[in-house]
Structures are given as C-alpha cells and as structure tokens.
C-alpha cells in the first residue's frame, strides 16, 4: 500500500534510487581497480582514484536526504527501517569505494616490480567472489529479498578461506626471496581490501535482513579467516 502523502513515497523511492546508484558506482570501482591491478593498467587505476570523489559526494547527498526525511516525516516501522537501512548501506558502499581506491593506488607502486602471475590470479579470483557477493547483495537490496541477502551472509566464509590461503602463499613467497617483499606486501593489502569489501557486502546483507524483517541476526556471522593463525609458530 502506498503512503497517503505521495511526496513521502517519492522521497523513499528517491533514497533507494540513490543507494542503488552508489552501489553501481562502487561495484564498478571494485571491478576496475582489480582489472587495473591484474593488467597493471595505471591509467585505469588513476580513473578509479579520481572517481571515488563522486561516490563520496553521492553518499553525502543520500545521508542528507535521509536526515531530511526523518525530520520531515518522523518515519515509523518499515519506513524507519528503510531510511536507516539506506543510510547504513550508503556508508558501507562508500567504504567499498575507498577500498577500491586503495587497490588502485597500489597499481602504480607495483608496476615497477615483476608480478607473479599465479599470485595475481589468486587475488583476481578473490575479487570475483567479492564482486559477486556485492552484486548479489545489491540485487537483494533492490528486491528487498531477505533470502538472497541471507545467502550472501552465509557465503562470506568462502572469501575468508581464500584470503587465508593467499596470505599463506604470499608469506612463503616473501620468505623465499626478500626482493619479493615489496610486491607481495602491496598484493597482500589488495587482498585484505577485497576481503573487507566482502565484509561490507555481509554488512549490507544484515541491513537488508533488518529492513525486511525488523530483526537483527542473533548468531555470529560465519568466519573462516585463519590468517592470524598462519603466522603463529607451532609449539615443539
């Protein structure tokens, strides 16, 4: 059922459109930054860095709109959750944009050193899953699909597990030859950024769940990041 006040309805729709718009830009930034990384495309990386300002600006606009709507309409129940959800998701997406920008910034630094194709492929694969998660959760937001959002939350441990194995690989590679360290560290930060993009996708999934049902998940989210354990020395 629509609101009796149609302007209110329009404001909520506009808010959702803004979030979707930021989502599209953030998705694109992640995809481009990873492509710039795998192809050492400094020009594309530069575009990603420059494009982040637009995401930031849109996030501000969305937040202002949400605050104004709260002040004007004093929303309740599903509307209140809709607006709070939009603010949270816009915040998560803005962070995703920052992380993509950080990946892009490292492309120029890596470009001088010799890349190990296999390691880059590992990061690429990690990014594919993170991007799929991001895309799926944005679709779940668009259709207010709690089930789809739930699946995204369940799948985050895949990213964590892959990140852990990449971490181990990079560690081994650095141990083999100190000349690899610079390259590996940059790649490790990229991998960590992508892993965190996955975490933001999970945050968004939890927000969608809240928006649709009004409830928050009581259980801990699935975790498979074992990278801390990977550096611990085994007792003799």
């Amino acid at each position: 059922m629509e609101h009796t006040v149609s302007a209110y309805e329009d404001e909520l729709k506009q808010l959702a459109r803004r979030v979707t718009e930021i989502g599209g830009l953030a998705e694109r930034a992640v995809a481009d930054s990873v492509q710039a990384l795998t192809r050492i495309d400094v020009e594309l990386a530069r575009k990603v860095v420059a494009g982040d300002a637009q995401i930031d600006a849109l996030q501000h606009i969305t937040e202002d709109l949400a605050i104004l709507t709260i002040a004007k309409r004093q929303p309740m129940a599903v509307d209140l959750r809709e607006i709070v959800g939009a603010m949270r998701i816009a915040g998560d997406l803005e962070r995703v944009g920052d992380l993509a920008k950080n990946i892009a910034k490292r492309v120029a630094a890596i470009s001088g050193s010799f890349p190990n194709k296999q390691l880059v492929t590992g990061v690429e694969h990690l990014a594919e899953i993170a991007l799929l998660q991001l895309k799926t959760v944005l679709d779940a937001y668009g259709s207010r699909d709690d089930k789809a959002a739930h699946l995204v939350r369940q799948r985050d441990d895949e990213i964590d597990a892959l990140y852990t194995s990449l971490f181990r690989e990079l560690l081994t590679y650095m141990m083999e030859d100190p000349r690899n360290i610079s390259f590996c560290i940059h790649l490790l930060f990229c991998a960590k950024n992508i892993e965190r993009i996955g975490d933001h996708a999970t945050n968004i999934a939890e927000t969608v769940h809240y928006m649709v049902t009004g409830n928050v998940y009581a259980d801990e989210r699935p975790k498979a990041d074992q990278s801390i354990a990977a550096t611990q020395t085994q007792p003799n």
């Binding site: 059922m1 629509e2 609101h3 009796t4 006040v5 209110y8 309409r73 929303p75 309740m76 129940a77 599903v78 509307d79 209140l80 959750r81 049902t213 009004g214 409830n215």
Partner: peptide
Amino acid sequence: IFTNPLEQRTQDYITGRFG
C-alpha cells in the same frame, strides 16, 4: 509496535498508509 509491528494493518496505520 513502532519499529516492527506484526500486523499489516498496524504497519499501514503507523506509517501513514491507511486508505
């Protein structure tokens, strides 16, 4: 009631959707 009502009619009323 005001964040997560269980009945659709409650939701419609408090969010200003009553026809």
